[in-house]
Each structure stands twice: as structure tokens, then as C-alpha cells.
Amino acid sequence: MTVSRPRVTIAAIAQAAGVSVPTVSRVLNGRTDVSPQTRELIERLLREHDYRPRNSRHPGRAKLVDLVFDDLDSPWALELIRGVEDVTHAAGVGTVVSQVHRRSTATRQWLQNLRSRASDGVIFVTSDVAEPVHTELHRLKVPVLIIDPAGGAAADVPTIGATNWSGGRTATDHLLELGHRRIGFVAGPRQLLCSRARLDGYRAALEAAGVRVDEALIRTGDFRYETGFAAAQHLLDLADPPTAIFASSDLMALGVYEAARRRGLRVPDHLSVIGFDDLPESQWASPPLTTVRQPLAEMGALAARTVLRLSRGETIETPRLELVTKLMVRESTAPLFAEAGRQPAE
């Protein structure tokens, strides 16, 4: 005979966490007035005890959140999914992950699926919401949020991003402080706001240091390994190649590693390299990659909490949020040494 487990209550979770019942309720409702440490503890206990709220609590809700990507073929997508699911699971809400590849047919199919099952909210990643889609979601009364919007989002669509400009500036400043002056930059897709902001941060750091921005040192990729490799090949083939390369994604930075290896250049002895994202792979690289950390899982979690609040008719404090980036200095950057075959700039 199967014995069903007793249902875990909010009071039991509160007791286990050493907090009040209202504090657990605030976490379940996606409220922001809970400290990150307390929120993490409560969400972990909710997952461990498989807490599920009573179905009668929000009888009109679908208990599903849609997470829509243009492209899922990237480790950073997994980090965002992890952040979203940490919150939705704790709230007893399912997550539907979709990939539309910027194709109109895929978008139409996704919308058709959404109409048939309903949704508490939609989170788009690195894209813009086309006007027909925005209009239809508004008609269906489905809240919408964008993570890293491609362009300027509609005024009524909240967005979540990272401090990309300051991340680009900080990474470039780090290389300048190490004595580098020939600093290559591998940009992401130009249509994305985050890509343009990182490039602008790179330019701002050089200009503030009195270093001329050499357009020959700037190449464009698409955040993938292959384009980082191709861009680095071009940069290292220059008559006066860079002594350091800042790639605006970790995957492109790993492509730079491979281009350097094929030329017999050691990182960082002959070439310093910086990435952007701080994916788990960056710590496993050889040497471990210096990179700019953008809090991807935290961005996903905040997005999920926000759309759940919107689905309940709550008002959010601000429609535009940016989470702080941080430079993670590891072993792929080093001072510009003469014995490495490079002469420091005067």
C-alpha cells in the first residue's frame, strides 16, 4: 500500500528556515523585500520539501510561465533557465521553454500553442517583441518581459539586463592597467543593445586613457566559439597585432584561445584574453579565463519573480532593471612583459 506524504505547509517551511510565515509568503509571491540570503534559503527548502501551493489559491491562473529564446544553443541560455526554474518551481508554476529562431513560422506556431494552453507570463530573451505578437499577448492579457532586449522595448514592456557598458569599460581598464595598448575587441551582434554597450565601454576606456581607438582592432562575431576563433585569426594576422584581446562573450574568448594556440602563442605570456559572461566553462579553461561576470541565473530569477507579480496584477517598482557586472580576474591576463616578445608602449 502506498502511503502519501503529508502536504508541506508554509508554516513548516518558515519554521525550518527560522523566519516568519509572511516572509515565506513574500518569497512565494515574488516580492523583492526579502534579503538574497533568506530568499535563497527559503527557495532551497521549498524545492527540497517539494512544496506545492493549493490549487485553489489562484484559481484563474494557468500556472505556467513561457521562456522564449531566439537560440538555445548556448551555455548562457542554461544559466537563465536555471534561474527562472528556481523561482517557478518554488512557486508551484511550470516553465515552458521555446526556441523561435527569429522565424515567423516558428513564432506563429508558438503563439498558437500559447492560445491553446494559456500562460501566466512570457519572458523573451535577447530579442524584441514584434508588434503583432505584442498586440496578441496584450489581447490575451499575458504579461511580457524581455531579458537583454535587442533594441528599444515598448514603454509598457519591462526589461532586465546587466551593466554591459560598465562591464566593457572595466575589462578594458584592466588590460590598460597591465600596460596593454594594442587591445583587440571582438564584438557581439551589432543589432543587440548589450553588444553595442560593451563596445561603447571598450571605446570609452581607451579614450579616457588617451589611447587612439584603432578600428582595425575591432571585429564582429555572434557570441559563438567559431566567430571568436575567426576574429582572432584576423587580428593576429595584422602587421601590428594586439597584445590583448577582449572578447564580448566567454565562448568567443575560448575561440581566441584556439587561434593563439595554433600560432604557438601562450595565454597570457604572449596574449592576454578577457571574456564576458563568467560561464562555468571559463573557470575550467586552461588557463582559467579572466572575464566579466553578468549574473545570468539572477537575471532569470528576477525575470520570473517579476512576471509572476505582474500576473497577479501587482505594480512593479521600475520597468528597467540592470544587474551589476563584476570583473573576475583569473590567469588569462598578465602585464605586458618585454621577455614575452612585446615591448611596453611608452
Rank of each mutant, 00 (worst) to 15 (best):
P36F: 02
D50P: 11
Y51Q: 08
S25N: 01
R26N: 00
I42R: 08
P59E: 07
Q37F: 12
R52Q: 11
H58D: 14
P22Q: 02
S56W: 06
A17Q: 02
V19Q: 00
S56D: 14
R39G: 07
I42A: 03
K63I: 09
H58F: 15
I42W: 02
L45Y: 08
G60T: 10
L67M: 04
G30W: 02
K63M: 14
R39K: 09
E43C: 11
G30A: 02
R54F: 15
R31G: 08
P36C: 03
V21Q: 03
R47A: 14
A62C: 00
T38R: 06
P59S: 01
N55S: 15
R47W: 07
V34R: 06
D33P: 05
N29Q: 13
E48K: 10
Y51N: 03
S20T: 06
Q37K: 14
K63L: 14
G18F: 01
K63C: 11
G60K: 08
V27Q: 03
G30K: 03
P36Y: 09
L41R: 05
R31A: 08
V21Y: 04
L41Q: 10
V27W: 05
L46Y: 00
E43F: 12
L64N: 10
D33W: 09
R26E: 01
R57K: 10
S20G: 01
R57D: 12
A62W: 00
N55P: 14
R39S: 07
L46G: 11
L28N: 01
R57C: 13
D33A: 09
A62R: 12
P53E: 02
L28A: 00
N29C: 13
L67A: 01
D66V: 04
L64K: 14
R57A: 15
T38Q: 04
V27H: 01
K63S: 13
G30Q: 12
V21W: 03
E48N: 07
E40F: 04
E43A: 10
R61D: 07
L46S: 06
R52H: 10
T23K: 09
Y51K: 03
L64H: 09
A62P: 02
S56M: 15
N55F: 15
A62F: 06
S56P: 05
E40K: 14
H49N: 11
L64S: 10
G30D: 07
L28Y: 08
R54Y: 11
Q37C: 11
R39F: 02
P53C: 05
L45R: 05
D50F: 07
V34P: 06
V65R: 09
D50T: 11
P59Q: 08
T23D: 03
D50R: 15
K63D: 13
P53Q: 13
T23Q: 08
P59M: 11
S20Y: 03
S25C: 06
L46F: 05
A17V: 11
L41E: 01
G18T: 01
